[in-house]
Amino acid sequence: MKQVVLQGIKKMKLIDVDEPQLMSADEVKIRLSVVGVCGSDIHYYSEGKIGSQVVEFPFPVGHECSGTIVEKGANVKHVNLGDLVVVDPSVHCGECDQCRSGRPHTCRNNRFLGCPGQLDGCLGDYIVMPAFTCFPVTGSLNPVQAALIEPLSIGVYAVKLASLVDNKQSVAIFGAGPIGLSILFKLLADDVREITMIEPLDYRLNQAKEIGASHAVQADKENVVNRISEIHESLLDVVFEASGEQEAVDIALKVLKPGGKLVLVGIPPDAKYTFDMDLMRRKELSVINVRRQNHCVEEAIELVRSGRVDAEKMVTHNFKLEETGKAFEIVEAYKDGAIKAMIHFE
Rank of each mutant, 00 (worst) to 15 (best):
residue 242 A to S: 12
residue 274 T to W: 01
residue 242 A to N: 03
residue 257 K to R: 15
residue 296 C to S: 15
residue 288 I to P: 02
residue 256 L to E: 02
residue 260 G to E: 05
residue 260 G to W: 00
residue 275 F to I: 15
residue 240 F to A: 03
residue 272 K to L: 08
residue 264 L to H: 02
residue 234 S to Q: 15
residue 261 K to T: 09
residue 258 P to D: 10
residue 288 I to F: 08
residue 286 S to E: 15
residue 240 F to Y: 14
residue 275 F to K: 01
residue 245 E to Q: 13
residue 260 G to R: 01
residue 240 F to Q: 04
residue 246 Q to V: 07
residue 255 V to F: 06
residue 249 V to G: 03
residue 272 K to P: 00
residue 257 K to F: 06
residue 288 I to T: 06
residue 273 Y to I: 08
residue 272 K to I: 10
residue 256 L to Q: 02
residue 256 L to R: 00
residue 241 E to Q: 09
residue 283 K to T: 06
residue 288 I to E: 05
residue 286 S to F: 11
residue 284 E to T: 14
residue 292 R to Y: 11
residue 263 V to D: 04
residue 261 K to S: 14
residue 236 L to M: 13
residue 256 L to G: 03
residue 297 V to F: 12
residue 260 G to Y: 00
residue 290 V to P: 04
residue 261 K to W: 03
residue 254 K to S: 07
residue 275 F to V: 14
residue 287 V to W: 09
residue 246 Q to M: 08
residue 298 E to R: 13
residue 288 I to H: 05
residue 258 P to N: 08
residue 295 H to T: 07
residue 238 V to S: 01
residue 235 L to M: 14
residue 283 K to A: 09
residue 276 D to V: 10
residue 276 D to I: 11
residue 265 V to F: 02
residue 273 Y to N: 04
residue 293 Q to E: 10
residue 251 I to A: 05
residue 264 L to M: 14
residue 280 M to Y: 09
residue 237 D to I: 01
residue 273 Y to F: 15
residue 261 K to Q: 10
residue 272 K to Q: 14
residue 248 A to M: 07
residue 289 N to V: 08
residue 279 L to Y: 05
residue 266 G to L: 04
residue 262 L to R: 09
residue 298 E to M: 13
residue 255 V to R: 04
residue 240 F to K: 05
residue 246 Q to H: 05
residue 291 R to E: 03
residue 243 S to C: 11
residue 279 L to N: 13
residue 256 L to N: 02
residue 281 R to C: 10
residue 293 Q to L: 12
residue 287 V to N: 03
residue 285 L to I: 15
residue 270 D to E: 11
residue 285 L to D: 03
residue 300 A to W: 00
residue 242 A to K: 01
residue 234 S to L: 12
residue 268 P to I: 09
residue 284 E to L: 09
residue 252 A to F: 06
residue 246 Q to C: 07
residue 238 V to R: 02
residue 285 L to G: 03
residue 298 E to F: 07
residue 252 A to V: 08
residue 298 E to Q: 14
residue 299 E to C: 04
residue 290 V to Y: 03
residue 296 C to V: 00
residue 244 G to W: 00
residue 297 V to C: 01
residue 237 D to T: 00
residue 278 D to V: 09
residue 266 G to A: 05
residue 281 R to D: 01
residue 243 S to Q: 07
residue 274 T to F: 03
residue 252 A to L: 10
residue 239 V to H: 07
residue 253 L to F: 13
residue 275 F to M: 10
residue 270 D to N: 13
residue 273 Y to R: 06
residue 275 F to P: 00
residue 246 Q to E: 06
residue 253 L to Q: 15
residue 266 G to K: 05
residue 274 T to N: 09
residue 243 S to K: 08
residue 300 A to L: 06
residue 264 L to T: 02
residue 257 K to E: 13
residue 286 S to M: 12
residue 260 G to K: 00
residue 284 E to D: 15
residue 238 V to P: 03
residue 274 T to E: 12
residue 282 R to C: 07
residue 267 I to N: 05
residue 299 E to K: 11
residue 281 R to K: 15
residue 261 K to V: 02
residue 244 G to V: 04
